[in-house]
Computed example of a mutant assay.
Amino acid sequence: MTKMNQASLKLAAVVLIVAVTVVFWWIVGDQTNEAARQLDAEGVELDYAIRPVNLGPAGERIVGVLACIGAIGASGVLVLGTYTRKVAFGWWWILIPLVGVGAIVGWFWRVLTAGEIGANIGLGFAVIYACPLLVVLLTAAAVATRRLQRDRERRNHPS
């Protein structure tokens, strides 16, 4: 087994965050309600906040399964890195909130791309609830980052 270097650990962290975003996007699935689907089948044009990219059921499944594999693999690399002390445990205080942000973004994207007739009320509720939670998670990650920086500065420049 090759040695883990810092670049591979950083890549694993990025892969984990992106993969969790895609996994949640896949698990949540299309949020277009049944009535809108029936109208779409009859030729009525649906309203979208953002029109989704259509990969089809097989394409979505492939992307979702690959994202699951990526998330599991990246998690394994990071856990092994923590076990072998290549990753400081404090980094998890940054990584976990960012993974939470990825999960919320994956869910939010499905709400944002849901087909509707008229206003997408679910989008309004999603904004009301998701945005404050995103702010809390990003603030937690920023505070943890600052704390790690301060601890590193103390170790490198003792008073």
Rank of each mutant, 00 (worst) to 15 (best):
A49S: 12
Q31D: 00
G64Y: 05
I62V: 12
R154N: 13
C68D: 01
I117K: 01
G118I: 09
L66M: 14
V23I: 10
G100W: 01
A142P: 05
E45R: 12
L112D: 00
K86S: 13
A114E: 06
L134W: 03
W107V: 14
G56N: 07
I69S: 07
V18A: 15
E116L: 00
G56H: 09
W109C: 01
T145H: 13
A36V: 09
E60F: 08
L16V: 03
F108A: 15
A142E: 12
S75E: 02
L148E: 13
S75H: 01
E116R: 13
A13V: 04
N156R: 15
A67Q: 06
T139M: 13
A7K: 14
G90Y: 10
A140N: 09
V28C: 01
V28P: 00
L80V: 09
A41M: 03
G64I: 04
Y83F: 04
I27H: 01
V135K: 02
F125R: 10
A36N: 04
W91P: 08
A7I: 13
T82E: 06
V15S: 05
A49E: 12
L134M: 08
E42P: 00
L80Q: 07
T113R: 02
T2K: 08
R155A: 12
A67F: 09
W92K: 05
A103F: 02
F108L: 14
G59R: 04
Y48G: 01
A142C: 06
Y83L: 12
G64Q: 05
E45D: 11
G100V: 08
I62Q: 02
I50K: 05
N156V: 15
G118P: 10
A144M: 11
G76E: 15
A36F: 11
P57N: 12
L98R: 03
V63G: 01
L78H: 02
P97M: 05
A7H: 09
G43E: 04
W107A: 14
G43R: 03
Q38D: 07
I94N: 10
F24G: 01
R51Y: 05
V15E: 07
L98G: 02
V23T: 03
S75P: 02
I117L: 13
R152Q: 14
T139S: 14
V79A: 08
E42K: 07
I50P: 00
W109A: 08
L39S: 05
A19N: 01
Y48W: 07
I17G: 00
V23C: 06
A144Y: 12
F125E: 13
I94L: 15
G29A: 06
I17T: 03
D30C: 01
V23K: 03
L78S: 04
L66K: 00
V79R: 01
P52T: 08
I72E: 12
V127M: 14
R155E: 13
V15G: 07
A103W: 00
Q31T: 02
M1H: 12
D40T: 09
V87I: 14
R147W: 10
L80K: 09
L112I: 04
T113N: 04
V79Q: 02
E153Y: 05
A130M: 06
Y83W: 10
R146A: 11
I17N: 00
R154S: 12
G100N: 09
E60G: 06
R51F: 01
G115A: 10
L134D: 08
